[in-house]
């Protein structure tokens, strides 16, 4: 009997082990190891061809070169702006889907929101280019309608980059928001009104605090995705798009400088983590109460 019991226990443990193995391997091989490798790589200084020394030279270079940290700050600032815009646009959409839409249209709307995900980043960016270029659809339409005298160039500026990025990432804001708001009992909103709150109060004091885990989760995902995006800012930003990922790419590919590329990569990770940490502190949330929950 006891023998039987122990084999069963072992089998259970084995099952658990097997279930977790892919996840553990994934984390270990694709997340932990590369990052350790990156840190190690970033701490190598090139002194001559094929000769490297341990040192912080790559990080010192970063600090001494304003172009680099300006670009990082610019990337961070624009990513924050994108996050805020995605939240401002995404919240009403999510609220409509979760609370106002009927049961049948809810699913359809949700799917509708997911459809753009089926198209690759690249194709989406090219879509924007076709629309917005000087000889593109928007420009020609504006001229035909008579709203513009000559061709209008809508590409290659920060506003376009931000619009493109918001469009790309907004789904990742909507999805956690819908799932949080969906879990909110309608009674809660009615109680908010019943106790004397107007729409603004109910939104500010009840719906938003309730949705906070979803808001924070969405913001984290969106911020990380934006700060780490490559194609959209490059393709839509044109000559003035300085995005930090582009600099990482340049270090790795154009300048064969993997050491400093690795340092940049690590700095981007550290910087975005810092921004998120500050954001969590300011909003009084914790990772476990937000991302884990929603």
């Amino acid at each position: 009997m006891s023998f039987k019991g122990s084999t069963r226990q072992d089998a259970k443990r084995l099952t658990l082990l097997l279930l977790f193995a892919p996840f553990t391997l994934w984390i270990l091989l694709l997340v932990v190891l590369p990052h350790i490798g990156m840190v190690v790589l970033s701490l190598r200084e090139k002194v001559a061809p094929r000769i490297y020394e341990f040192g912080f030279g790559n990080y010192i270079d970063f600090i001494q070169e304003p172009i680099y940290w300006n670009t990082l700050l610019r990337t961070g600032g624009m990513s924050l702006l994108v996050t805020v815009l995605a939240l401002l646009i995404g919240f009403p959409v999510a609220y409509y889907i979760a609370k106002l839409a009927g049961n049948r249209s809810k699913g359809a709307l949700f799917i509708l929101c997911l459809i753009p995900l089926w198209v690759s980043d690249l194709i989406r960016a090219f879509g924007w280019i076709l629309l917005l270029r000087e000889s593109g659809i928007v420009s020609t339409t504006l001229q035909k309608v008579g709203l513009a005298d000559g061709p209008v160039e809508l590409l290659y500026n920060d506003a376009t980059v931000i619009v493109g990025l918001v469009y790309t990432v907004i789904l990742f804001m909507i999805v956690p928001l819908v799932s949080t708001l969906d879990g909110m009992d309608n009674e809660m909103i009615e109680a908010g009104y019943n106790l004397g709150g107007n729409s603004f109060t109910v939104m500010r004091r009840i719906v938003i605090p309730y949705a906070m885990p979803g808001i924070v989760a969405g913001c984290i995902v969106v911020f990380m995705l934006t700060a780490g995006s490559y194609l959209t800012p490059i393709l839509l930003g044109g000559k003035n798009s300085s995005w930090f990922t582009e600099q990482i790419y340049d270090q790795f590919i154009r300048r064969y400088n993997w050491e400093s590329g690795a340092a940049f990569g690590f700095l981007l990770l550290a910087f975005t983590s810092l921004v998120i940490w500050i954001g969590l502190k300011l909003s009084g949330q914790t990772l476990s109460s937000t991302v884990a929950k929603s």
């Binding site: 091989l29 694709l30 590369p34 490798g37 990156m38 790589l41 990569g265």
Partner: peptide, 11 residues
């Protein structure tokens, strides 16, 4: 290994 495996994964 650093030189061969990791960068492959990284990039």
């Amino acid at each position: 290994t650093m030189k061969t495996v990791l960068p492959t994964v990284l990039l």
